[in-house]
Amino acid sequence: MGKKRKHSETGAAANENKEETAVERPKRTLLGFKDGSSTTTEQQQKESSIATFRNKEKVLVTCSRRISYRYRHLMLNLVSLLPHCKKDNKVESKDSKGATLNELVELKSCSSCLFFECRKGKDLYMWMAKCPNGPSVKFLVNAVHTMEELKLTGNHLKGSRPILTFSSSFDKQPHWKLLKEMFMQIFGTPKDHRKSKPFYDHVFVFSILDDHVWFRNYQISCPHTGTAQKIDRGDLEKMTLVEVGPRFCLNPIKIFAGSFGGPTLYENPFYVAPNQIRSLEKKQKAGKYAKKVKAKTRRKMHQLSNPLEVDEFADMWKE
């Protein structure tokens, strides 16, 4: 059973006297609110909720037109990693705004969407949205390495469920919490999905560093000892990870309340658009000639205003 439940049980054991009188905050489940009147019914309800809970996540993966090949490969890599996803045709980026995409997701009967938008053939934005009405996030994607790169030597089963590891900074702020939940739902393969394999041989690493989310995918490799399929403790120590790829780094730009739109809930205060960066650079470069001319004239003025003193020894040896 889950950890949380154990915790609540121990908590209940600690104050068993007050248990009846204590008014607990109603907890949300998929079935609605539950009233914690007594522990037995609660447990039953828990059991039933667990029994009835079925993760039916389905992710639509698409991209905009004129996406560059590297980013397209990244998208295809993600498609191969997510057995519960559906890949769709490219969407014209002009009409990729809001409504059309929502419609498309609904048409494909998906519950979330990963949309790769490429602008100017160089900047990749990734939209991650929970579809009918959930929040959506827009990321800028940096540092892309696809699975095809030969330095990433790992390999794992197609469709095996990943173990998702999150760094603890995901629990520090609400927007990171929200992102964590979304990553967990979208990148985690649903249990008992028909395309999933019954083993676990890779791990996704989501880590926050410098306000970016870094993604890594590692294969779990373990030296097999003899014929035994079970792993003992000694082998656990010898377990190593081999990187499979892809890698990318997500810079969250905005979080919206609706899917592909709606009121903004979060805005990255440090974000500078790549266009802005480029224009700044161009400006710096453009100023070069003007600066040179200016410096020249200034030098001239300086020389004119401070003439050299006549050297009295100048013609000493020129008799």
Binding site: G2, K4, I163, T165, P190, K191, Y200
Partner: peptide, 14 residues
Amino acid sequence: WPDDLDWTHRLNID
């Protein structure tokens, strides 16, 4: 998802 969900659904580790 519900808090009391079995870990095998999430497979998350912090």
